[in-house]
Design a binder for these strands. Structure first.
Lengths: 336, 336
DNA sequence: ATTTTTTACTTAATCGTTTGCGACAAAGTA
DNA sequence: TACTTTGTCGCAAACGATTAAGTAAAAAAT
């Protein structure tokens, strides 16, 4: 690989001059800058990122920490959409991405240690057990951090507006004439608490009292458990007229169960999902759901993180709330 | 951050000794090794990966190059499964992952340049236009490369056995009594050519002649185009009794079209997918498909790549072919 | 007892950058 | 003329590690 030294020799100047010229310092004449830039290009020079990082302590690398309970990893359809837009925004700004894990060589170490080892400039944390001590260590560390879908008071966060999302969804269903609304929610997390809280609050404001049997604790992205709980709901004496599922994906389990039960959607019973994954718009019937704006969430997270990194002093704690949008399909029927 | 120097001072030895002790060289006494390791741990020492990389030219970083035509990125359900298992295997061996792109700072450069800049030890290439000059540059470069689902004669590759997969699928469908089999395939690629070729070959061997109108050129992971082409097939004078879709995901478009057309699956017409994504087993009816072993594909790719990196001289070109497995659902009906 | 080998460690160069400081000439100012 | 300013550029240290070569003492061999 051609280094600054090679260019320096060819141009008959010192290494320092080459470095400064390439970095466009003001104490180099335009003429030599031009010469150096030209020969650098000719020789196919590429900066050495380690050498640079070693000296400047800046890597242009962002850490991504993500681990859902089911260990879906990159196959997690919400996370990979968020990550994809995060990645695109980061790359646009010249940053690369490194996944934070607990390995380095044969050794196992903490997330913080791995992040330090790789020298990431900042970290985005998503879809994780935020009470994991290793995560807490990261949150309290000296590394810039942005969290997604969870709020810490000393950290900037980007969250999907699950409160408004659920409110919009319930309100729409109410306006369609439903009064008996059931909700199979996912495992406990900030997201779940917001959704469940908003579900109860909105129902309350609309004058609905929801029996405990209508709110079931399920698992995200698990069609099987959703199917099971759906069956329980269908067996209730007073059957709900509409069921909210944990998410679009798991709704497939619920929908199948309902059909097997001999009920038609939406004629006999209505359903709704959450997420707005691409697939949801191809289900039969087309699913009514809340489309989370994963595009904005990922992009905002990258923007905020990079802003923190590049302007450390001005870093104020920000709370970005990204609204979703209701997608009205054919899965919720107008009641009369 | 605590460095070798700090440990050296504390232990009263030279930096070199500390380095060697930590790396378990044989010319350091057990006693001092023990001392150094202990104080290193006490002081919370972490090696500096750049410094190490600068000296050794080894980063323990693997480049991932991936860009499908539709620019799905990480949301691509086949790729993200492959990548996920690649990542897990890599991490288990102490390697991290870096996405190769064309950015570095404000500049745009080639994949090769980006890879060199980041100093990745090797690269895995998947789901990409392998005729892109920038990809060819990488293939012909000095960097260890493993390709997925495409074979170059000078490079190790891991491919899903699309030939056997399609053969199994067609044979099964034939055994179920079908003689009029249509195939909506995806856009041109190695994968597509293998599948289409195997489709024709298997049909031929089974004594079937497939009219041109039965083989349609569609788009992967696109329910809409698949829906359109499905309708064309349904409108044929001599309608096929079974339709193969490009993949499970796009099959949803086809299935919906068939239902809207007033036909029942599998009673009136049979269908099959390809991929074996999780979802396919929750469709109604459960989809008959080929489950590609993404787990093995990703893992093998990581294994082969790391083997090449860690044993450069012994590197022979390998061709790993990973067989899929037919998943028999209820979407193909026994004909009489 | 002397030489050789082994053990255990140190010295110092090196990887490719960045950057504060100093040097020196040309230009400006008094 | 003498001094200061300005514009260019080089020197050299530093970042944190690795490693070949050297050294001194202890152990083994003669």
């Amino acid at each position: 690989m051609v280094s600054l030294k090679d260019i320096a020799v060819k141009c008959g100047v010192s290494i320092a001059t080459v470095s400064k010229a390439l970095n466009n310092h003001k104490d180099i004449s335009e003429a030599t800058k031009e010469l150096i830039n030209r020969t650098a290009k000719e020789m196919g020079y590429l900066p050495n990122s380690f050498a640079r990082a070693l000296k400047t302590n800046k890597t242009y690398n962002l850490g991504v920490l993500f681990a859902d309970e089911a260990n879906n990893g990159l196959t997690h359809d919400y996370f990979n959409r968020v990550l994809n837009s995060f990645k695109e925004e980061a790359e646009r700004k010249g940053y690369d991405i490194t996944f934070i894990n607990k390995h380095v060589g044969e050794k196992c170490l903490s997330y913080y240690e791995h992040a330090k080892y790789r020298g990431v400039d900042g970290i985005v944390i998503a879809c994780i057990n935020f009470y994991d001590p290793d995560v807490v260590e990261l949150i309290q560390s000296d590394i810039p951090v942005v969290t997604i879908d969870h709020v810490f008071d000393n950290r900037t966060s980007v969250v999907s507006d699950n409160i408004k999302g659920m409110q919009d969804l319930v309100t729409y269903i109410y306006q369609m004439g439903h009064r008996k609304i059931a909700y199979i929610h996912g495992a406990d997390s900030s997201v779940t608490r917001n959704r469940v809280g908003s579900f109860y609050k909105t129902c309350g404001e609309l004058g609905l009292t929801i029996p405990d049997s209508y709110v079931q604790s399920g698992i995200y992205r698990d069609p099987e458990s959703t199917a099971l709980l759906t069956r329980q709901l269908l067996n209730l004496k007073e059957r709900p007229t509409c069921i909210l599922f944990p998410d679009d994906f798991s709704s497939i389990g619920g929908i199948n169960t309902i059909k097997q039960y001999g009920l038609r959607i939406p004629d006999d019973i209505s359903v709704a999902g959450y997420d707005g994954i691409f697939l949801s718009q191809f289900l039969e019937p087309k699913l009514t759901t809340i489309r989370q704006d994963t595009e904005s969430i990922g992009r905002s997270a990258a923007e905020k993180l990079i802003a923190m990194i590049e302007n450390p002093k001005a870093s104020i704690i920000e709370r970005v709330v990204v609204e979703g949008r209701i997608l009205i399909g054919n899965s919720v029927k107008k009641q009369n």
